[in-house]
Design a protein around this nucleic acid. Structure first.
Lengths: 211, 211
DNA sequence: TGACACATACATTCGTGTATGTATATATCA
DNA sequence: TGATATATACATACACGAATGTATGTGTCA
């Protein structure tokens, strides 16, 4: 009962505080992904999360640190899933990769937060000023993913699933571009793109031609 | 002689005025493409163009109108070239399209202004607030280009250069995604991507599999 | 009773838009 | 053709709101 009639200004327990932190991050994700990072003020984030700027400045040093936290959360939830999916040895690596890409894309249809996070980091962030530290981090992530992809393709080639004269570097870049292109075109107008229907077809079209 | 010792504050002739207008637009293109539209102030643009904000407000109503002018210039110089290239009937439409894409991409290697303009409009603009009018314009451009692409592929299919059972819509989307992906990945770090070498190979890889 | 988790209040800066100043190009007229 | 008036192409100055960061207040959990 005491829980039910809590007054507004009651001091929060630790889990309450964590929840407000999450609310702030979710509000930031929402606003950043639609308005862009620069164009979003801390007041807007506060309003959208039903707190004041005071709460934001308690949990974060400034907007940049919010961005950093989002980047961290993204890195945890997202990349890791793809990674561990790809690392398991599969008899048909190309089929697996196609399936992973397909699943990654179709999963965005229902997961709004993931979609927003991707929109934010793929389309709405320009790493300038205080954000310039992220360039190195982003680049590191990218090369890491590319290395994984490369190993993967080499494995496929050794198994005879790719022509022996295929240029792995070109293939790698090609896949990277294609996937990013699909992602960005989908994310730029999700309502205009039936990703559940299109993703498998688009992936099929691409991967079927590689063998 | 009078020309040589012109004082700073001499009033400009009409062509001088047009030149300062161009300077402002070029400065805006440079800053917008690196810092993003929102993060760039009119003062920065003015400094970068060696004028004051007074000059900017003389030529343009506000930042949005600068963006509009850039969009217009882009539309003139850029889309048109691709269009008229594709409209001429060619015996091998797919080869032609591959060549057009390849040329478009490699041309960016030397044309900094074109590169910046593309960077700006593909990666650094979020159409919100006053800029929301551009969404419709952008969408119209896109559907127009897509229609052209579709006609093109249908022509190729009728000539027997594409399998009769190819899904033109998927193909269309696929090409669109691929090209945009290559563009964005190149533009996001041009120094890390030898476009002159890569573009033909990437296009070859993609188009060779269609037939 | 102190540290915590905020809300509130304040100072400062930055960007914008507008108002005004000003020197000259250009049009007009004698 | 030259003198004058006017519009042009800016530069400068000012006023305003928005956003930021910080300082301080406040109630409660532990």
């Amino acid at each position: 009962m005491c829980q039910a009639n809590r007054r507004e200004n009651m001091r929060k327990t630790k889990e309450d505080a964590l929840k407000t932190r999450e609310n702030i991050l979710n509000a930031a994700t929402d606003l950043f992904s639609t308005k862009g990072v620069e164009a979003t003020s801390l007041l807007e984030i506060a309003n959208h999360a039903d707190v004041t700027r005071g709460a934001i400045y308690w949990h974060f040093k400034n907007k940049c640190e919010i961005f950093e936290a989002l980047h961290e959360r993204m890195h945890q939830n997202f990349i890791q899933i793809v990674m561990e999916d790809l690392e398991t040895d599969h008899p048909q690596p190309l089929k697996q990769m196609e399936a992973v890409c397909s699943r990654l894309l179709t999963s965005l249809n229902d997961d709004i937060l993931k979609r927003q996070a991707l929109t934010l980091f793929l389309m709405k962030c320009n790493y300038i000023g205080e954000f310039s530290d992220f360039v190195a981090k982003q680049k590191q992530c990218k090369t890491q993913a590319m290395m994984l992809l490369k190993q993967y393709l080499e494995r496929a080639q050794k198994k005879g699933l790719l022509p022996a004269d295929s240029d792995i570097d070109i293939l790698m870049t090609s896949i990277n571009c294609y996937l990013k292109g699909v992602l960005i075109i989908y994310l730029s107008d999700p309502d205009d793109f039936d990703i559940k229907d299109m993703a498998p077809k688009l992936m099929r079209l691409f991967f079927s031609k590689l063998a």
